[in-house]
Design a protein around this nucleic acid. Structure first.
Lengths: 222, 222
DNA sequence: GTTTGCACGTGGTCGA
DNA sequence: TCGACCACGTGCAAAC
């Protein structure tokens, strides 16, 4: 019914335009403008309709209501994303880092090295923050009498001096391996702020030197 | 159909009237209509502006662009929520059962205490050694700025002074809780040689004092 | 020049 | 009747 009246008005106006055909020269441009505006309007209305279809179904078909509820829904979704991301980070923080590689490495060769430091980046698709990265630092030390406490303390005190990394989680184990030589393994999950420079190899080498120095000192003491 | 003809006649009459006399009918009702429509328009534009302010900042100030980008952003946020929720569920499913209690405890009350120390004996039927016992020491510290590194270092240095306990494994996490107050949790598995005297409550109280002292010092420093 | 976009006033419909 | 809402055509800018 409404469409009918609209089209009726349209034809009426067109008739009016044709009535003044002799005095109004820019009829074609005006007509083009008119239909262009009509096209714009219907496109905008279509966008309104599709947007309303995405909103929660109890929404009024009001244009203003569509806008305001879109705004509210958007902020709500943002809050949900933030909360979920935070909770996700909490969960990931206390998730034990994968320790399978250490076992394989220990079972295989490379045991001639008393200290091994590996640094692997954790790719997490849930929190793809571009300004920070997450690394897993694994330190394995085979020594006759280097207690895990000293090792962890040394590593942590070293980490405190590096200002753009922060500790997310830490996992340390010690176990006997073969005849009276125990193996200490520490896995640290680190969050690296990407703002400053970050030399991965240099950091790894520094950790290696710290641990090797600890092993030397301890062996000299005993 | 009848209505159509009626409206047609009416509009025709109105147009005739307007053509004839233009100054006699700008009555107050038309003026009210005008300013009301103006009010409506500016309110709608305001809604447009606020909605655009919530969109990603590279958005065109076009009305249609605002609508379409709002739609895209909304679907994107929805997808993010779905993916985060799925991942969250996966993470919660594979969460170790030991950490669930701490999670609930953190979510529930008992947050009035900034430091909590619990010591539980691990009964393991696989190694029923009678001359040594295994304990799990859990330390939770809620503080605005007590980094986990210091906490672990303090606990380990304290442990080094106790001569009849040795560290088996260590697990430390830190995560944000609420507004800018992070929670540090450290779980230590200790082997206690039963030969000498072993006062469980005293040990726990000593750990609590160490951690509380650390928190005090850190709060005083900052 | 043309196209795009927007605010304006206006007439019309639908519900209190 | 009054108020809210909407579509229409048009004048007026700025941008391709």
């Amino acid at each position: 019914m409404l469409k009918r009246s609209i089209s009726f008005l349209r034809s009426l106006n067109l008739m009016r335009l044709r009535e003044g055909i002799q005095a109004t020269r820019p009829t074609s441009s005006q007509l083009h403008h008119m239909i262009s505006e009509r096209k714009r309007r219907e496109k905008l209305n279509e966008s309104f309709h599709t947007l309303k279809s995405l909103l929660p179904p109890g929404t009024k078909k009001d244009k203003a209501s569509v806008l305001t509820t879109a705004r509210e829904y958007l902020t709500s979704l943002r809050a949900q994303v933030a909360e979920l991301s935070k909770r996700n980070q909490q969960l990931e923080a206390r998730l034990p880092p994968a320790a399978k590689e250490a076992y394989n490495e220990e079972a295989a060769g490379s045991s001639n090295e008393r200290v091994s430091v590996t640094l692997t980046q954790v790719v997490s698709e849930s929190t793809p923050d571009q300004d920070q990265q997450i690394f897993d630092l694994q330190v394995v030390l085979r020594s006759v009498e280097c207690c895990t406490e000293d090792m962890v303390i040394r590593i942590l005190e070293f980490l405190k001096q590096v200002n753009n990394v922060s500790l997310m989680s830490l996992e340390a184990n010690t176990w006997m391996s073969g005849s009276d030589s125990n193996v200490n393994r520490v896995i640290l999950r680190l969050r690296v702020d990407q703002g400053t420079e970050w030399d991965e190899a240099a950091f790894q080498e520094a950790v290696r030197r710290v641990v090797a120095d600890l092993a030397l000192n301890n062996c000299r003491n005993q």
